[in-house]
């Protein structure tokens, strides 16, 4: 304590001065390479798809090993048996037509939902009441499983594609709208003012400023919506089987389980996974690479 008060009395004490040092710059050629290339292995493992493919290979090996160890084709077919069944299904055309039937309904439902979502969110962002309406509706309907309203859809629209579309729209619409609205609301104040500074208003403002600025959220909403649509559709097909003249993947899975063709069931599931991986890994990734990644809005 005594020491502290002593220094306080003295006040600011400067340190002893030291002489200045100036150094000449080293000529550039004496320093050598400032940047060096990475090695082949580092560059290879830097590629996301290489690392992900490796994960797939490991999972595949684990599957095959367990199936051989269990040795029960009826309960848990091996990867090779599943691939064989998948190939047979593709060659006979049964699997292809199932996929075709399912994708047709899926894309139609998805497209309808996205269109409705665009209208809803544009309305929602233009007025405060609209925001409240959409926020309340998404809060109400988003947690409601699509499959729970399937009985109602069947009652209203009968056994057919319309019912399927209805439940898909329900499952996609709220997820996409919620994400889009959140994206719109979180567009930076500066970018909004930039747009308004140039006299942009209404739909023009939404299209030229809000949608591109909120694109990362919109895209993630579209991805979630796509996954929801898949789940809903497969589940719905499992429940009521044939829709009109086309049998879908869900029906293919259900039918083969009844026939105890477990390898075919796995082949059907594998198809769902493959399409899922393709859409996520190729389609959405391409869109991302051309947009949000290119713009530096997402790492």
């Amino acid at each position: 304590m005594a020491e502290v008060s002593a220094t306080q009395e003295v006040g600011f004490v400067e340190l002893a001065a030291r002489p200045d040092i100036e150094r000449p710059r080293a000529p550039a050629h004496t320093i050598g390479d400032v940047a060096q290339d990475l090695g082949f292995r580092e560059r290879l493992f830097d590629k996301t798809w290489v690392r992900r493919a490796l994960v797939l290979v490991v999972l595949g090996i684990a599957w095959e090993a367990y199936a051989r160890y269990a040795g029960n084709e009826l309960m848990f077919p091996s990867l090779s048996a599943t691939l064989d069944a998948w190939w047979q299904g593709m060659r006979s055309g049964v699997l292809i037509s199932s996929v075709y039937g399912t994708l047709q309904v899926l894309l139609l439902g998805y497209a309808v939902a996205v269109c409705i979502s665009v209208v809803l969110t544009t309305f929602a962002i233009s007025t405060r009441v609209g925001t409240d309406v959409l926020a309340t509706m998404t809060a109400m309907f988003n947690p409601l499983p699509a499959i729970a309203i399937l009985p109602l859809a069947l009652l209203w629209f009968g056994l057919g594609v319309t019912s399927l579309i209805f439940v898909i729209v329900h499952s996609v619409l709220w997820a996409v709208s919620l994400n889009t609205l959140t994206g719109f609301l979180s567009v930076s104040q500066t970018q909004r003012m930039v747009g308004r500074n140039y006299g942009l208003r209404g739909v023009n403002f939404v299209v030229k400023i809000l949608i591109p600025a909120a694109f990362p959220s919109i895209l993630s909403g579209l991805k979630i919506g796509w996954a929801f649509a898949w789940r809903t559709l497969i589940a719905a097909e499992l429940v009521f089987g044939v829709s009109g003249n086309s049998a879908g993947l869900g029906w293919y899975i259900f039918q083969n389980r009844n026939a105890l063709e477990t390898a075919n069931v796995f082949a059907g599931l594998l198809t769902v996974i493959i399409i899922g991986l393709f859409v996520e890994g190729v389609i959405f990734r391409t869109i991302e690479a051309a947009t949000v990644r290119r713009w530096g809005m997402q790492g």
């Binding site: 500066t190 930039v194 308004r196 500074n197």
Partner: peptide
């Protein structure tokens, strides 16, 4: 009302629209 006869330069760096190149940003208004 806001108008382009009074162009504003803001403090924030995100005033450039990230989905447009430098040239596109200048053309945009």
């Amino acid at each position: 009302a806001p108008g382009a006869d009074r162009m504003i330069v803001f403090q924030e760096f995100d005033q450039l629209l990230p989905w447009q190149t430098v040239l596109e940003n200048v053309i945009f208004p």
